[in-house]
Nucleic acid binder design. Structure first.
Lengths: 170, 170
DNA sequence: TTAAACTTTCAGAAATTACTGAAACATCAG
DNA sequence: CTGATGTTTCAGTAATTTCTGAAAGTTTAA
C-alpha cells in the first residue's frame, strides 16, 4: 500500500508501485492473475503495469516447464534496482532538459534580456552536465568501492587534501 | 514552455514549472500580474504557484518603496536551487518510506514469508539510509570542494586506494 | 487446424489533479 | 474610517491520468 501511495513520487503510478512492491516482498515469482487478485486490480492493468516496469528494466519474466503462464519477479538485486531507477529517472528528468539547453545556447541572443537568460541557462546546463557526468562515473565504480566511498562521507575531503599535499611535496 | 512540460517530472505541476522558469530567466523581479499575463494563467493560480514554490524554498518576495505590490524572484543561486530541489525531493520521496520501513522492521515476522519480506525491506532501508546520509554529508561540504570531488570523478577510487596503502604502511 | 490458455490492446469510465474567477481578506494612504 | 490596491482562498469546472473489461492477438499441445 505504501508503495502505491509513493508510486507517483517515485516516477510511476499507484498500481505500478504496488505491483513492484509486491514482487520485491515475494520470494517466488508471481503470475499476472496472482498479482491482479492480490492487489484487486484488473488483469489488463497488470499487463500495462508489467510493461511499464519492463521499460524501467525492473522486472523479468520466467517460464516454468509444462506451464504456459508467465512468471514475474524483480530483475536484479536491490542495489541494481536503485541504480536503474536512478538512471531511468535521469533519462526522463534531466536528459531532455540538457538537450534543450544545449540547443538554446547555440542561438545568438537578440538583446540584453536574452543575454541574461542565456547566462542562467548556461549555469544550469553546466551544473546538470557535471552532475550527470559524475553520476555515471560513480556508477562505473564497483558497488564495493562505492560503499567505501559513501562510508567515508565528507571525510573524503580530508583524503583529497592529503593527496594534494603529498603531490605538492614531490 | 519546456519547464512546464517537465514540471511534473520535477516534482511540481505545469504552471509552477513555468513560473519558476520565467523567474529564473528574468533578471528583474516580477509581480503576480506580470507572471499571470506572461504565462496566460489566472491570478489565483499564480498565488497558489508562488505558495508552492515557497514551500520548496525557491522564491523570495521583495517590496519596492512606494509600492504595495509584491515582487517575486528566485531565492539563491543556481547551485542553491539544485541543493534545495534535491533536499525537498528527498523529504518527499525518501523520508516517508524510510520511516515506514523502520516501523515495519520493529515487528516480529509471523511466518517464513514475512521473514523474507523483512530481509528485503532491510536491504532497502540500509541502502536508503546510506544514500541519504552520504547526500547530507556531501551537502555539508563547501560547493568548491564538491566541485573538485566531482571533477575527480571515478578517479576518486585511486585516491581511496592511495589512502589505504598509506595507512597500511604505518 | 483447432481450441484452450494465456497476454495485449484500447475505447470509454472513473478517479485524480490542476485551473479559474469571484468573493473574502489584508494593508495602507489620505 | 474608507476606498484603492493589492493577495489569498476555495467551490466548481476543466484537463489529465489511471483503470476496467471486453475484444483481439498469440502460442502451443494435440
Amino acid at each position: 500500500m505504501h508503495c502505491g501511495e509513493m508510486g507517483s513520487r517515485w516516477g510511476f503510478n499507484r498500481t505500478v508501485g504496488q505491483m513492484y512492491g509486491l514482487l520485491i516482498i515475494h520470494e517466488d515469482a508471481l503470475t499476472a492473475i496472482e498479482i491482479s487478485e492480490a492487489l484487486n486490480i484488473s488483469r489488463g492493468n497488470v499487463s500495462m503495469g508489467i510493461k511499464e516496469l519492463q521499460s524501467w528494466r525492473l522486472v523479468q519474466v520466467q517460464h516454468k516447464p509444462k506451464d504456459r503462464k508467465e512468471y514475474y519477479s524483480p530483475a536484479g538485486s536491490i542495489w541494481e534496482m536503485a541504480t536503474r531507477v536512478f538512471e531511468e529517472r535521469r533519462k526522463r528528468e534531466v536528459d531532455p532538459t540538457l538537450s534543450l539547453l544545449r540547443d538554446n545556447l547555440l542561438d545568438e541572443p537578440a538583446n540584453q534580456k536574452e543575454v541574461y537568460a542565456q547566462e542562467k541557462m548556461h549555469e544550469i546546463h553546466d551544473l546538470l552536465e557535471t552532475g550527470t557526468h559524475w553520476a555515471s562515473e560513480l556508477q562505473s565504480m564497483s558497488p564495493d568501492k562505492l560503499k567505501t566511498l559513501m562510508k567515508l562521507g565528507s571525510g573524503v575531503s580530508k583524503v583529497i587534501n592529503f593527496k594534494d599535499k603529498f603531490i605538492n611535496k614531490n
